[in-house]
């Protein structure tokens, strides 16, 4: 059985090293925070916060306390607030150990596309381009194929890029792949998924 959303998030949580500062994107990446276990991880929210806490209890929402997805959240004893220029200074400056992000397409060069589909509504890149350019390690978490069953793991991205040669590791419902010299290397297969299954669902060169 391929991994479901929660299993992908659980697998992605294994990537996080104890004592680091991490930025989680919207969607499956947000679920990763449910699986960090005993590890001491500080979450960065790029709108200007380190030490992001869980959603508030009903009635405790504070309009001055939101995350980068505009959701109401809470603070922790370790929380620090800062302005947007400082926030992206720490991102661009490589102080954030990892970003876990969703994607529309990834390719064997480590190129990532996750912000724009030409001809459709364009909402903007937000902080994604800064994150993939600046953090030490970029981990993509996504389904291996799109709703039409077409692979999202390509030889060359077709959509406008968020970043070129920025992805380090790809975690999909079928397994885990690393971006290496010459293509992608299989690191792990999801339970019950064979290497042949993963290869059949992948266009990128597997080395």
């Amino acid at each position: 059985m391929p991994w479901d959303r929660n299993q992908m998030a659980e697998r992605a949580a294994q990537e996080l090293e104890d004592g680091t500062y991490v930025n989680l994107g919207i969607g499956i990446p947000t679920l990763v925070s449910n699986y960090v276990g005993d590890k001491d991880i500080t979450l960065q929210s790029e709108n200007g916060m380190l030490g992001m806490g869980p959603f508030p209890f009903e009635g405790d929402e504070d309009p001055d306390l939101i995350n980068a997805g505009k959701q109401t959240i809470t603070e922790l004893p370790r929380t620090a607030y800062f302005d947007s220029a400082t926030s992206f200074g720490m991102i661009r400056g490589g102080k954030i150990a990892a970003a876990i992000l969703g994607a529309m397409e990834v390719d064997e060069n480590g190129d990532l596309a996750n912000w724009m589909i030409p001809g459709k509504l364009v909402k903007g890149m937000g902080g994604a381009m800064d994150l993939v350019a600046g953090v030490q390690r970029v981990i993509v978490v996504m389904d291996h194929t799109n709703k039409a069953g077409e692979t999202k793991v390509l030889k060359k991205c077709t959509l406008p890029l968020t970043g070129a040669a920025v992805v380090d590791r790809i975690i999909t419902n079928l397994g885990v792949l690393d971006v290496v010299e010459g293509g992608l290397k299989i690191v792990e297969l999801a339970d019950g998924v064979t290497e042949a299954d993963l290869r059949a669902a992948t266009e990128a060169t597997i080395v």
């Binding site: 790029e46 947007s84 992206f88 661009r92 937000g126 994604a128 350019a133 600046g134 970043g163 040669a165």
Partner: peptide, 29 residues
């Protein structure tokens, strides 16, 4: 890009007319 926008404001306020960033290299930006 969000960080570029923030830094363009910060730079302008600090009297810096331009700066180099790796954000957006290899993209439409």
């Amino acid at each position: 890009p969000q960080g570029t926008l923030a830094e363009r404001m910060r730079a302008g306020g600090a009297g810096i007319p331009g700066f180099y960033t790796k954000t957006g290299v290899g993209t439409q930006v």
